[in-house]
Amino acid sequence: MAVKTLDNKRNRLLMATALFLGLGAVPFFAPPFYVVFLNDALIIACLSMSLNLLVGYTGLISFGHAAYFGLGAYACGLLLKSAGLPFGVSLVAAGAFGGLGAAVAGFFCVRLNRVYFSMLTLAFSLIFWAICFRWNDLTGGDQGLSGIPYPNLTWISQMIGRPDFSSAQSYYLVSLVVVAICIAAMWIIVSSPVGLMLRTIRENEQRSTFIGVETRRVKLAIFIVAGTIAGLAGGLFAVFNRGVYPDFMYWTKSAEILIMALFGGIGSFWGPAIGSLTLLLLHQETVALTEYWSFALGVILLVLTLRFPSGLWGLFERFTNTRRSK
């Protein structure tokens, strides 16, 4: 049994490494459009996976997760553009701001359960949004912050021996590494005893208190971790999108990533990533093909959700008939 688990672990690690290397190879042969598209998908996948730490693992349905994504984006954008700090520093600050915002909001939110928790996360996200929307002098208000420069990434193109790489191509590699680190961190957390505690809280919070889990503290901790990763994703996205806009933290964005997570399957680690990739792809193609994008997208979503409630990952598992990952 122990050997089998070890094997399983090694297989997973091998598969993740292969995925990482495969994604890393993309800019070397794929047309620039797909590099840009995958960059977008990577960042959003990381964001919806961070939300899944709360929704899927701990049973905390957050309706305001985009707030921390937005905080990170604004922090990174402002530090890069207005303060002229280096990209590395700005990105770390993005994570810190996301985490800080989550700590403040989480301190209050984790005291409540179920729908009250959800409503409070929504309320906090609206507060953060309103601040960024109204603070014209700092954030550019409704018009946002455009013209965020690409960091100087020539060292990357030189290091990999491709001086012809554009900033967008090099930036894809930066995003990939940062996202991989975030995903690895999330994987370590959910496979550790803390991960077990999260699942215990999800199944029965009262009982987990009885067996000695300090539920409030654990919930706050995972809320901050999720917020920090969302902030890092936001920082990456600010540069990728070349601008930060209040929409990034509006409740519609929160709903969007929640839908992505549900669509991919919140019962698994990779589900939300698959959901993000698929929805972004569907969105991309329906927009390009038809003006009635929302109608087409709605129909596809409706069919998939009604037919396959456990998400795409559940569907995938049904086919491969493997053991559920959790």
Binding site: P31, F33, V36, R242, G243, D247, Q284, A288
Partner: peptide, 23 residues
């Protein structure tokens, strides 16, 4: 080649990139 920006700047960036790089 028209594209809907849905009144969102990030969506405008997305479609503008698609127009330039793919279309």
């Amino acid at each position: 080649v028209p594209r809907d920006t849905k009144s969102r700047p990030d969506e405008a960036v997305r479609v503008a990139r698609e127009l330039v790089l793919r279309e």
